[in-house]
Simulated scan of single mutants.
Amino acid sequence: MNEKVKDIAVRIKGLRLLAGYTEEEVADQLGIKLDQYKLYENAEDDIPVSLLYELAEIYKVNITEILTGTSPKLHDICHVKKGEGLKVERYDQYSFESLAYKYSNRKIEPMLVVLDPGNSPEMVSHKGQEFNYCLEGKMQVLIGKEKFELEPGDSLYFNSLLPHKQLALDGKEARFLTIILL
């Protein structure tokens, strides 16, 4: 695992210990098997973004704190210049860039996502609602058994508890803005 994943795992373990929870208790709260949770906490497996959000909720911290080890400080305005968003490397198939990571107590999580054309990620689900806006390329969004094709300018809003994934089409990279209601 890369150093970022190891750092996140250390922070998650530290938060669990500070909260006084056992590994079993956290695994139960997340609805996953204890063995899988241990893999995450020991940096032996990549932690899905949806689980990071759930862990942030359990520990009452901002996800930025889990990702970077620092708490966001801005309360009224957060300006992020092009290319300066917080890179969130969670899956090989997706490249995430958090666009409001400095803003404290966010109610939404806006991210720039780049889809790798050669990969097919697993379906994911997470609490909240999600908005996808295609910026470049052509992409497909699978929600349950339904398929939606998005081209630049197209958008899709959905219940993110439904299993979903995004795919780049035509063998080319696709970029989209996603906004997740936390």
Rank of each mutant, 00 (worst) to 15 (best):
K107F: 08
Y59L: 01
S98I: 01
Y94F: 11
K145N: 14
Y101P: 00
S95I: 05
E25N: 03
Y37H: 01
S98F: 04
G20L: 03
P110D: 06
L55H: 01
K127D: 08
L18W: 03
L39H: 07
V141K: 00
V10C: 10
A19F: 04
Q166Y: 08
K60W: 02
Y157E: 15
S160K: 03
D46C: 04
E57L: 08
L167Q: 05
F148S: 11
K87P: 07
D45K: 15
D35S: 13
M111E: 10
L161F: 14
L169P: 11
T70R: 12
R16G: 01
Q29A: 08
K33V: 07
L67S: 03
L34A: 05
V10R: 11
M123N: 13
K38F: 01
Y103T: 00
D28L: 13
V113Q: 02
N2M: 09
E23P: 03
L162R: 12
K6L: 14
L51P: 00
L142N: 10
K145V: 12
G128C: 06
L39R: 07
E173N: 11
K165P: 05
V61K: 03
G69M: 10
G14F: 10
L182V: 10
Y91V: 07
T68L: 09
Y103L: 13
S50A: 13
P110H: 04
K60H: 13
C78Q: 05
L161R: 15
E44L: 12
D28R: 09
E57K: 12
D7V: 11
E3M: 12
R90C: 05
Y37P: 00
D154H: 13
L115F: 05
V49I: 15
L30M: 06
E3K: 15
T64Y: 04
T64G: 05
A9H: 08
I12M: 13
L52C: 06
L181V: 14
A27I: 04
Q140E: 14
Y37M: 04
G118I: 02
E89W: 08
K4C: 09
I66T: 06
K87N: 14
Q140K: 15
I12C: 13
K73F: 02
G69N: 07
K81Y: 09
Q36V: 15
G85P: 01
P48H: 07
N119C: 04
S155R: 15
N105E: 15
S155P: 09
I12Y: 01
G85Y: 00
Y101Q: 09
I32M: 13
Q140P: 05
D76Q: 10
I108L: 11
K87M: 10
T68E: 07
Q140S: 13
G118E: 14
G128I: 03
K73T: 11
N2K: 12
V141W: 03
G14M: 12
T22P: 02
Y59H: 12
G153D: 14
D46F: 04
Y91G: 01
Q29S: 07
V124L: 03
A19E: 13
V80R: 01
R106M: 02
I32Q: 06
R106H: 04
L161C: 05
L55M: 12
F148W: 10
V80C: 00
